[in-house]
Computed example of a mutant assay.
Amino acid sequence: MPCRYHCPNCKHDVFEEISVNVTTSFTVINTKEGLDYGKQSSAEGGYVDRFQCASCGYVIKDPDGTPISTLEEVAPVLKKLGAYTNEETMGEP
C-alpha cells in the first residue's frame, strides 16, 4: 500500500538524514569564475544522529522522545503520528 509521508509539524514531504563526526572530501575544480567545489569524493566515519524535516527542522522521535537514527524507523513513527497519506485511497469519498 503506497504511502506519502509528511512532516507532522509543517506537512512538507522531504526529510533529511543528519550525520555527525563525518569526514568528507570534495574535489575542487577550476571554472571561468575561479575555483569551485566539484563532486563529493568520499565520506568516512561518523554516525546518523537523527532524521528531520528538510523544511522546518522538526526532529522525528520515537514514542520515548529519542530521535530516530535509522531509515527503517522513520516510516513507522510517521505513520503512528498520522503523518502520511495512503495514496491508494486519495480522492475517494
Rank of each mutant, 00 (worst) to 15 (best):
3 C>V: 14
4 R>P: 01
4 R>T: 04
5 Y>C: 08
6 H>N: 14
6 H>C: 09
7 C>M: 04
7 C>Y: 00
7 C>T: 08
9 N>M: 05
9 N>S: 15
14 V>H: 07
15 F>V: 05
15 F>R: 04
16 E>C: 11
16 E>W: 10
21 N>C: 13
22 V>F: 05
23 T>W: 09
24 T>F: 08
25 S>L: 01
27 T>A: 14
29 I>S: 04
29 I>W: 02
30 N>V: 07
30 N>L: 11
31 T>H: 04
31 T>D: 04
32 K>Y: 05
33 E>K: 14
33 E>C: 10
34 G>P: 08
37 Y>K: 02
38 G>T: 06
41 S>D: 03
42 S>E: 06
42 S>R: 08
42 S>F: 10
43 A>W: 05
45 G>P: 05
45 G>N: 03
46 G>Y: 01
48 V>D: 10
49 D>M: 14
50 R>L: 09
51 F>K: 05
52 Q>R: 03
54 A>V: 02
54 A>E: 11
54 A>F: 07
54 A>K: 10
55 S>Y: 09
57 G>R: 12
58 Y>S: 04
59 V>P: 01
59 V>E: 01
60 I>M: 09
62 D>A: 13
65 G>P: 01
66 T>G: 12
68 I>H: 00
69 S>C: 15
69 S>N: 15
69 S>W: 00
71 L>Q: 14
71 L>M: 13
72 E>F: 11
74 V>L: 06
74 V>R: 09
75 A>Y: 01
77 V>S: 06
78 L>Y: 00
79 K>S: 11
80 K>Q: 12
83 A>W: 00
83 A>S: 03
84 Y>Q: 08
85 T>E: 14
85 T>Y: 05
86 N>H: 06
88 E>N: 10
88 E>K: 10
90 M>I: 13
91 G>L: 00
92 E>S: 07
92 E>W: 09
93 P>R: 03
